[in-house]
Every structure is written in C-alpha cells, then in structure tokens.
Amino acid sequence: MSKHVNQENNRKKKRWMLAALILLLLLLITSCSVTIWSIFFRDTTTTLAPDYAPQEIDPNATPTPDSDKEDEKLEQEQGGGSVSLQYTQDVRADLSDGMVYFSFTNPYESNQDMVLQVVVKGKVIAQSKLLPPGNSLSKLPLREGVNLSPGGYEGKFTAAYYYENGEKAIVQTDIPLTVKVQE
C-alpha cells in the first residue's frame, strides 16, 4: 500500500516538474522573440503628423522677406482651406552633421500653418514643428534611430495643414522627390 502511494506521489512530482519545465521553455521562447523583434524589426521612425498643431514654431524657421503682407491672403471657402507651397527638389541628408538640407517655404499668402515631414521609404527621417505662413525652412535634424547609407533614395515631402484653432485639415500634400544621402 505504501509502495503504491509512493509511486503515485512520484508520478505527481514528475508531472509538476514537466509542467514547470514547459512553462519555463515557453517564457524563454517569448522573451527571445521579443528581444529579436525589438532589435531588428521594431519600427521606431514611422510617425503620423500630429492631429493637433504643435504649440512651438520650428526653431529652424526663418521669416520670408514679405512675411508681413497680411492683407494679401488667399481666398478660401468657409470650412475649406487654401495654402501655397514653394520648394525645390534638391534634398540632401548629411550623415556627418545629422541634418537634412532642403528649401521649403509656407508663403505669406497661405491661410494655414504647416508641419513638414521628410519621408524616405515610408519612414519619417525628419519632422518640423509648426511652420506658420511667411516662413521658410532650409534644414531639419535627422530623427533618432534613422539609419541610412550614402546614396539616393525615393522619398517625399509630406505637408500637413492646421487651422487657427489647431485642428488638422482634411487635406494634406505629398511631394515625391529623391533624397541624396552623403557622409
């Protein structure tokens, strides 16, 4: 009788040990998967333009010479919008100083503020703070975590627009271009 009870106890112990072992193995596989994903696959650079306008004007913004012409705004329908964009297609990312160089202006006659993104292969490599009408940008810092090799990349400007109350407009603009990356 006692022999039978001992055998039963041993079997129970073995089952518990086996269950604990399987659980530990599962935990190990899970933690390894999370580690591999965070190192190699986690997307740290894709960013949507904010739903509400940033509070701060971009520190790289410079006023255009005619930025005080408030009386020559574009016509727009109530509830609609109207913006002008002025730019060149020359966009260079300099890895040595971590900056992207370009020419982009939100002319004084625009009715909406802007936020500008520089996008390469679907990833935002640089994003501005607020760019009000009558201001230009010629450079932005590369975002942290951006890894690019020297060469040419298909990219684009993405401009999002914001009303005076900070709400994002239904319309945004993409401008395809080539981004040249240099050391």
């Binding site: 329908e77 509830g79 109207s82 964009l85 002025q86």
Partner: peptide
Amino acid sequence: RIDTYKVTISWEDFT
C-alpha cells in the same frame, strides 16, 4: 538654373 516650384492648393468644405 534651379527649378523652383510654387503650387497653391485650395479645397472646399468636405463636410
């Protein structure tokens, strides 16, 4: 000569 683009986009009330 450097090509410079200036484009104006106007949209109606999409409500």
